[in-house]
């Protein structure tokens, strides 16, 4: 018997999403039953990695079969779900899914920053967004999408924030590695442009040497070391408002 198929039958009848650990427990339990056949006992002590491997294969097979449902991993647990394009009929049949109110734009932006840069302090979030985020952070905390992760080892020991398993469930993510463009967003490489074309071409004083400046790749946003210096410009220039 193929391990994949055993797992499929379990997931097919499961009342809740199952983690590889829970699947392993079931395999062990079945093998320990009195008079279990050789076939069943063969799956005793199947390592979790083997089960995970089988789950991924199974998921690929379902994907390839192009059915109306697929096998997905959300927050580390596996389940069958329907493809989104069948929502109109399912909504009519089962009703609208009971989901909390959609997040606001500031909420989503703040959550994205926390998700990619966690653990992160509020000051760091504000440096990226350029506005205060107190209210937004409070809302995200109340909705249990983020949690206090500890304190940063900088002056004032500010609170740091991280996402919760509920965050993964809400967005249907297998884990934090499943965030889109994770590598890029954790440390954003910014190319210094060949030439900074910020100068008004009508100005005769355009710096002539800028065009020859080679691109300098630059990385920033190390989440471990919250910088204490604000990224805004010095205050010297006159405020004309």
């Amino acid at each position: 018997m193929d391990l994949k198929l055993v797992i499929e039958s379990l997931l097919f009848t499961a009342q809740k999403p199952l983690s590889p650990g829970e699947l392993r427990d079931v395999l062990n339990k079945a093998a320990d039953e009195d008079g279990a056949e050789e076939l069943v006992r063969a799956f005793k002590k199947t390592p979790v990695e083997k089960i995970e491997e089988a789950l991924h294969e199974l998921s690929k097979e379902h994907e390839a079969a192009n059915r109306t449902y697929r096998l997905v991993c959300i927050a580390g647990s596996w389940q069958f779900v329907t493809q989104p394009e069948f929502a109109p009929w399912l909504r009519a049949f089962l009703g609208v899914k009971n989901r909390p109110a959609r997040l606001s734009q500031p909420g989503l932006e703040t959550l994205a920053i926390i998700a990619y840069r966690q653990p992160i302090t509020r000051t760091e979030i504000e440096q990226i967004r350029g506005v205060a985020v107190d209210g937004v952070v409070a809302t995200l905390l109340e909705r249990n999408l983020i949690t206090q992760a500890g304190r940063a080892e900088v002056v004032g020991r500010p609170m740091t924030y991280a996402t919760t398993p509920a965050f993964l469930e809400y967005f249907g993510l297998a884990g934090l590695d499943a965030l889109p463009d994770a590598d890029e967003l954790r440390r954003i490489p910014v190319q210094r442009p060949d030439s900074l074309l910020t100068v008004d071409p009508n100005l005769a004083t355009a710096p002539p040497d800028l065009a020859s400046t080679p691109p300098v790749p630059m990385e920033f946003g190390n989440p471990e070391v919250p910088s204490a210096t604000p990224t805004t410009a010095p205050e010297e220039p006159p405020i004309v408002a």
Binding site: Q79, V81, T82, A87, K97, R99, R102, L108, I128
Partner: peptide, 27 residues
């Protein structure tokens, strides 16, 4: 940097929408 996170927020938003469209298999 801000634009990248704004784009990431948009991706999260589309996932948020999609999650409202998928139904779990629950016998």
């Amino acid at each position: 940097e801000y634009k990248k996170f704004k784009d990431a927020a948009a991706q999260l938003q589309s996932r948020e929408t999609e999650m409202g469209f998928i139904y779990e298999h629950r016998p």
